[in-house]
Computed example of a mutant assay.
Amino acid sequence: MTKAALKYSNHPLATYIEKLEAGDALLPDSPENVLEVVGILKSYGIVLDAYSRNLIYIAEHQFLELFPFFKYFDGEFSVKKLLQHWWHDRINFEYAEYCMKAMLWHGGGGLDAYLDSPEFSRLAEKAIQAKLKGNFLMLGLHRLFPEFLPEQIRQFAYYSGLGQFWRVMSDMFISLSDRYDRGEIKTIPQVVEHILNGLVADANKPITYSVKIGKEVYDILPKSAGLTFLTDTGVPYVEAIFFRGTPFPGTVSYNAQAAQIPADQSDFTYGALYADPLPIGGAGIPPTQLMQDMRHFIPEYLHEVYRTSCRGEDDLRVQICQTFQKSMFCVTTAAIQGLAPHPLNTSDPKQRQANRAYLESWMNRFTESRLAEVNKPDERYCQLFPER
């Protein structure tokens, strides 16, 4: 098969397949898009830093606590922080837990498989016996309901796994912003390359988790399990959060007879790449909490874009969500490039054919996404870029 024979695809999103094969990103390259993507990823990186620290704190210090009233305080409780918590003048760690639970529910990858293994059951039981030593009431309940506490430990494993994943991503996004400030990042392909290099550099970073009970340390995810950053947390995260997600309460009926939610989890399209930005900013919509958190850390150059838009800051969370989706298509481009069976610029006919099938499988997932929307010209820049 010649190179020319693969030039065109019959897929409805063939244009994007050809863009990826040519080394371009799913998001158009423009100074405006670079400004938005880098700016929002800087804010997101700061928020992920807080999310990561809290998830790891909960996993390590709130292990099997029945009433973790102060789990969002990272071990630094004070009356001032409590009042800020009640007044919602704080980071919304509930969104981090929403993502963790979505990953736990959708599963996939080596972490999910390990948590169903006999080895995990043995380690979990060992930790349970140490934690409940002398607590005869809880030990009795554990005997009556032997699956309850192991399921809680599976959840703690996801707290830790997602926290470790976000730790890497936070550092990656902050370093991207630093390079942009130094003038090293000027195009969307450079943004994608930075993210891809970061994913590759940490691809085999071990994902481990242990808890200290008394004076002993108990492994939950030992290094011997062979869990790694990209395959066992990164890929399942993209699947669970970028694509599938969970239905937002109040927007669809959970009544099975109404049939508004797909019967198969694999058909879910509630992830970040599909979400309509308009509901973002409404009560009960989980991403609203993320947009609220990011609005506190938006760099001034991006804030100026929002202020000069036709609505100003009246729909700030909606604008943040639109920008965030642009950035997530850049991250997804990096993931597509990194997971491709062969280099996308290969000249080998068989490799190009395999890549084409691989890219078409991705495009099947994008047919109902916001991909077309983020590729439309943005009129918000009329005052900042008059030449447009």
Results as ranks from 00 to 15, higher is better:
M1Y: 01
T2F: 08
T2P: 04
K3R: 12
A5H: 11
Y8I: 12
P12A: 05
I17A: 02
I17Y: 02
E18Y: 08
L20P: 04
E32W: 07
N33T: 06
V38E: 03
G39P: 01
L48Q: 08
D49F: 04
Y51F: 11
R53M: 09
R53Y: 11
H61N: 13
L66V: 15
E76T: 15
L82V: 12
Q84D: 15
Q84R: 14
D89S: 13
D89W: 13
Y95S: 10
A102I: 14
H106G: 02
G107E: 07
G109N: 09
L115K: 15
D116S: 13
F120A: 06
L123D: 14
K126P: 09
I128M: 09
A130P: 01
A130N: 00
L132K: 06
L132I: 09
G134N: 03
M138S: 12
L141G: 04
L141P: 07
H142R: 04
R143N: 03
L144W: 02
P146E: 01
E147K: 15
Q152V: 05
R154P: 08
A157W: 09
Y158M: 09
Y158F: 10
L162S: 02
G163F: 05
Q164P: 02
Q164S: 14
L176S: 14
S177Y: 09
S177R: 03
S177V: 02
R179Q: 10
R179V: 15
G183K: 01
E184Y: 13
V192K: 03
V192Y: 06
N204V: 07
I207H: 06
V211W: 09
K212H: 07
K212M: 14
G214I: 04
V217F: 15
I220V: 10
K223C: 02
G226C: 13
T231D: 07
D232R: 03
T233N: 11
G234W: 01
G234D: 00
V235P: 00
V238G: 04
I241Y: 02
F243M: 11
F243K: 03
R244A: 08
R244F: 08
R244G: 03
G245N: 00
T246C: 03
T246G: 08
T251D: 01
Y254T: 13
Q257R: 10
S266Q: 13
Y270P: 10
L273H: 00
P279L: 02
L290P: 02
Q292K: 15
Q292W: 08
H303T: 08
Y306P: 12
R311M: 09
G312R: 05
E313H: 05
D314H: 10
D315A: 04
Q319L: 01
Q325S: 05
M328S: 05
C330V: 12
T333E: 07
A334C: 06
Q337E: 08
P341K: 12
S347P: 13
D348Q: 12
K350D: 08
Q351R: 11
Q351I: 03
Q353K: 09
N364E: 15
F366N: 00
E368F: 13
S369C: 04
R370S: 11
A372L: 14
P377K: 02
